[in-house]
Nucleic acid binder design. Structure first.
Lengths: 243, 243
DNA sequence: CCCGGCTTGCCGTCTATACAACTATTCTCC
DNA sequence: GGAGAATAGTTGTATAGACGGCAAGCCGGG
């Protein structure tokens, strides 16, 4: 097991793979120290910087942990820890081979209700843009999206833009701030009568409830709302810790 | 805005922070090119390798994207994408200021039922260890855990170890393979009569259902089961994209 | 016996340099 | 005018060397 410098895959990556295989196959077990950077450098004929690049890649993936002055050690795998990634709706549907779509149910200027005003840090009753949309997978409704967003520019609201664009683009057009980050909270709920009718399922069906706040670069909120995902059509799969 | 080389925070990190501030404050907007590595190197008095370290940190955080031969560009923030991290139960409870605990409901050797046998890649009826536990937060039940795991070593099953140790440690003791990775699927469901009674809530309460498979280093399954988390006590918050 | 200082080994960071690979532009030749 | 070659600019990778800071062991002095 050595490095092929004439290969297309760079040496730092080859070394990372070698070490990963050795860890996964039990050559080095959790808690064991890896050889020092200097020794790996000599053993594989690479400079220490290159070795460090391999190690930092493994450390990012959570396989190893370095301790200054002591050495590098194989981590105990965190088996009861999981990372769930919720991709943007269109991508997620496309990845499953379903045709993504959206149907605009309502888009109008309304006085901000109490909760939306609080979340948007606006006085209650401020004119905000309220949007209700149905997200479709191959024509079938799978999610019901309700959002409030700041309406600062006074630009006209075009039906077709609301129909097809993603929510952040709409915010960017109508709010006087560029949304730079998003904060989401995922909860679980059961659908009420109205929500169930809109999603075309039985009332009492379980669903994911995702509350989303859009923030501008300086942390001011510019959009807020919820999205309900049908529990019978949605699941989150943990991301594998890959190098 | 320049680098203080006598500071305790290393220069690569200072530069990363400077660039992050400039991006978040709109000096560089999504799609804009950043100055080239050579120019940043000259402007801030750092070597190109150090500049690259700053940039790679920003790239990992998703703020920028580099294109070979072309340059480095500010990414459009992926606002409809979220990363949810589910920590190990004890840590999660401790982080919320609740006292974590567990109550063993049942632990015995059973013939593997069809689904468990399939997931563990064993013949139906193979003797496996079946464990049912209640996970507690300050004495109150918040999750109901049911797991099957390989029982290869024939070691005696000790009540107190099952009571307090995390599931992966138990697997390690009784299965002839070290669990190295875990795959989870998160779904949403409503509690049935029995589950609701065990969790001390009303039937029909929504809940998270987490299916978990534990795999050994070579990919063979060594444990499998579900854990139900009370929907009224559990929520997932998206991880901020921090540098 | 204990404590403090020295030494050694290790990781963390930074530098200067070199070459490779890719992109876009400019120039040259037909 | 067009096609292809040369060129400049950019990121990707690798090297050798240097210094700093942390941890642990060793050793001698009290």
């Amino acid at each position: 097991m050595s490095i092929d410098k004439s290969s297309f895959v760079p040496p730092y990556y080859q070394l990372a793979q070698i070490l990963e295989r050795q860890i996964r196959s039990g050559v080095y077990r959790p808690g064991d120290p890896l050889p020092s950077e200097a020794e790996l450098s000599e053993r594989y004929g690479l400079s220490r910087m290159t070795v460090r690049r391999s190690l930092s890649q493994l450390a990012r993936a959570g396989l190893i942990r370095t301790e200054r002055g002591k050495g590098t050690f194989v981590s105990r795998p965190q088996l009861d820890r999981a990372v769930f990634v919720m991709e943007e709706f269109h991508k997620e549907m496309a990845a499953r081979g379903l045709a993504p779509g959206a149907r605009l149910l309502e888009a109008r200027l309304v006085p901000a209700p109490e909760k939306a005003a609080a979340r948007l840090q606006l006085p209650v009753g401020t004119r905000v843009l309220y949007i209700r949309r149905l997200l479709l997978a191959s024509g079938e409704p799978v999610a019901y999206d309700r959002k409030y967003l700041r309406y600062d520019r006074g630009k006209p609201i075009l039906e077709n833009e609301l129909q097809y664009q993603a929510f952040p683009e709409i915010v960017e057009k109508h709010a006087a701030a560029l949304p730079m980050s998003s904060r989401m909270v995922l909860r679980v709920t059961v659908l009420g009568e109205e929500e169930a009718r809109i999603l075309n399922v039985a009332a009492g069906t379980p669903a994911f409830l995702v509350e989303q706040s859009l923030l501008s670069g300086d942390g001011r909120p510019v959009g807020w709302g919820w999205c309900l995902y049908r529990g019978d059509r949605y699941e989150l799969v943990s991301a594998p810790e890959a190098i």
